[in-house]
Design a protein around this nucleic acid. Structure first.
Lengths: 241, 241
DNA sequence: AATCAATTTGACTCCAAGTCAATTCTGCGT
DNA sequence: ACGCAGAATTGACTTGGAGTCAAATTGATT
């Protein structure tokens, strides 16, 4: 009885993953507007009704995709936060994680953008919203802890508000990713590798906050090599690191 | 005949403005998904068919709203760029314009976000897309010219790529606006006034680029007062300026 | 007043999200 | 092995809104 129950549960979450896998693929290919649940049903070889046994609405499904990616992101952040080194080096490891994540989930920021619109958010289920908040909180805390350490250890000026530092880093990172993908801007600004610029912008902001050691006071290319080797050994991207 | 023709033309564009006014209102109230063209038709007291005489699709209509706002933005940028002062002061005037604009068009960045999704962009008309590019180009050039002046005049280090500076400023500004509106982040980061932070972040980036005079080398609050008085005399917002 | 072109309309088509009565499956008792 | 009850699954159906187009209306011209 309880044996059967747990097996059922496992099968259920396996199917949920299957749905999410295909939905993510179609979403990346067609965008949210053109994501067709009849087609999704055909792809997963279950009926449309079954999809609705897992997700309240199309918005709920989309949010679920975002949550799954965000969880992965939070995992990477927490791994990166463990990097042994000075506070700014640890922050750099998270910046690295963020770019690594952006490469694996090229569509993530677009989905995240849609969550801004209220009508979207309110059509998702309560549970799913809470799950999103949990993962977002983990990401925030990973970074905030490092900034607080930096203030305590004197790498950032006393009296600095840690949350403001985190805010500016989130803003420059989000902004770089979103703007960097825009073909117009790529043309106007002559951009080839948006990710590289995202990381350089993070350096700008850190220098702006006077986060020691500044860019020209430390050999961060050595740090990058260590991050790559110790935290993300199986990465082939970001050749500069 | 030609008299009639121009009158017709005027009436036509007056009606287009009417449609855009109401569409913008409904868009702000309900979001794109819930924007209903039957309701819009009722609001403007014309039939739905008439709307489609002006706009190819719902996406085209939405893009038209964005273009109209963007044109206003470009106008403000060009006005701000004329500010008499050192290069960084002029850049600051544009930052000011940007915040001013964000206040008047709280929904603009959300619309702009939707343009990122390819499916949206390709459903708008060719003409409308071109119009958007024109206005975006004006905004870019306003800023880029100032940065080039700064490099020439030695306020920015020689060898700095002006487009990279512009990119970072666009990124931090967009990012700040988007992230600052997010209730989660507001909660986590303890944010009351997102606009103030957006401007502070712009300062961080400028300092990061070593744009002279740095924040602590100049009395920018005096600059702010002048900008307010000379460029935006009819503004009541941004009390700190 | 009659005619014709231009403009405007709203009933209609079509597509896709979401529902739910009917069907199929599954595990258990006899 | 068989049959039954309830759980799981289905896909035809409803609904709502974007986009269309034949018909109605308007307005200019003779």
């Amino acid at each position: 009885m309880s044996v059967t129950a747990t097996r059922k549960e496992r099968e259920r979450s396996a199917r949920e993953e299957l749905i999410l896998d295909h939905a993510q693929r179609l979403l990346l290919r067609d965008g949210y507007q053109n994501l067709n649940l009849d087609e999704l049903a055909r792809a997963i070889e279950y009926s449309k009704g079954t999809i609705y046994l897992h997700f309240q609405t199309k918005e709920d499904l989309t949010l679920a995709i975002a949550v799954r990616a965000l969880k992965e992101r939070a995992d990477m952040f927490e791994r990166a936060a463990k990097f042994a080194g000075r506070t700014r080096e640890r922050a750099r490891a998270i910046g690295f994680a963020c770019c690594e994540f952006a490469v694996c989930h090229r569509d993530y920021f677009n989905i995240e953008m849609m969550l801004k619109s209220a009508s979207f958010w309110e059509k998702a289920s309560e549970d799913r919203r809470r799950a999103h908040n949990v993962q977002a909180g983990r990401c925030f805390r990973s970074m905030n802890t490092i900034v607080q350490d930096a203030i305590r250890e004197g790498d950032l000026p006393t009296g600095t508000h840690s949350e403001h530092v985190v805010f500016s880093l989130i803003a420059i990172t989000m902004g770089s990713h979103i703007v960097g993908v825009n073909p117009d801007i790529q043309f106007y600004c002559g951009i080839e590798n948006p990710l590289e610029l995202a990381r350089r912008n993070q350096d700008l902001v850190c220098d702006g906050w006077n986060w020691r050691p500044l860019l020209n006071e430390w050999d961060y290319s050595a740090t990058d090599k260590r991050i790559k080797a110790e935290i993300f050994p199986d990465t082939t991207l970001l050749k500069s690191a």
